[in-house]
Nucleic acid binder design. Structure first.
Lengths: 184, 184
DNA sequence: GTCTATAGGGTGATAGAC
DNA sequence: GTCTATCACCCTATAGAC
């Protein structure tokens, strides 16, 4: 039941945002009454924190696993492709949680941001390491400030969730186009 | 006073989202009482529609003016640079409205989306025409589907507003990096 | 044009029965 | 574990005084 509540909340956060997400709405979808939620969670805030962190972790884990699985001498382009595809796949495999994470983070009360910012910083580090590795294997050679490249890639990838319905597996056309820009 | 109300509402929409934006909050910032807002506007919905449309129009007008001002034989790279810089400048020059537009559109009730979607479609058309023009003058020559390129550029540029505080004029470092990716 | 007062409804959270 | 009932509060919108 705990998971059903989280799933229902993630869906609502992704579609409607934090303030528009109500415990009564969550309860309806999860199949219980609003008051019963407090047996499983201490507050709406706690539910939200858990979802925002899970959403980032799905993508973070996917990207780091995909990159770590490559042979140490993999070409820069291969590294970038692995990271981009893993990122997009994770977005669409865990649509509700990842969308909730991306869209709600900066709109949410400060207490919640504080409890989710660390996970996000870790994720930034993973992508930055990935870009460094790609650069030391032949890609992005002209770019001294990988932070800018990071922002562009993240923006392009995370923007896919803005389509209503969220990211689809069909978004992998975007992977090819982005890669052709980065690797040429 | 009408403009003060819109400014206050845009600020709140940009920072807190649609549901978290209250007429009392708007009234406090604008310097009147909540009930008085109804002398100037019919509803919270109407205020929101006006802001979302203005936000897109600021950027849309800036991009189309910048591109139209170029000589007809301008190089593709010049066209792209003009459009990107105009887009980023407009984002930071009208922070509250543009941020509200970008972040609230997909979270807002359907009535509001319907009244703002046309402006957004027009804007998409402007960017797509710009990319076509750039391609016919030497840039993006390998790309058959400019729609994908469009999504990447828009994602990278609009992502700048996700930083708390919104886009800054310092974001023009991003312009150079993005351009180097597109024009190589 | 702006105010006060209020209607009518929704919200997160708690207490206690079962 | 889940329910019902309820508290205290906030919301949009309206009505009528000034």
């Amino acid at each position: 039941m705990r998971r059903r509540i989280l799933d229902a909340a993630a869906l609502s956060l992704a579609e409607n945002g934090y303030q528009a997400t109500t415990l009564r709405g969550i309860a309806d979808v999860a199949g219980l009454k609003a008051g019963s939620i407090y047996y499983h969670f201490a507050s709406k805030e706690q539910i939200t924190v858990e979802i925002l962190n899970e959403g980032v972790e799905y993508v973070s884990d996917a990207v780091s696993r995909a990159v770590d699985a490559l042979p140490p001498d993999a070409e820069g382009r291969t590294v970038l492709k692995a990271a981009i595809d893993a990122h997009l796949s994770a977005l669409s495999a865990h649509k509700a949680y990842t969308r909730a994470s991306i869209r709600c983070f900066s709109m949410v009360p400060e207490d919640i941001r504080e409890q989710t910012i660390e996970t996000r910083r870790d994720f930034d580090g993973i992508w930055l390491d990935t870009l460094k590795r790609a650069r030391s294997h032949g890609s992005l050679t002209g770019h001294t400030d990988l932070r800018e490249v990071h922002r562009i890639i993240l923006g392009a990838l995370n923007w896919t969730i803005e389509k209503r319905g969220g990211p689809s597996t069909r978004d992998h056309a975007l992977s090819e186009t982005l890669l052709s820009l980065l690797a040429s």
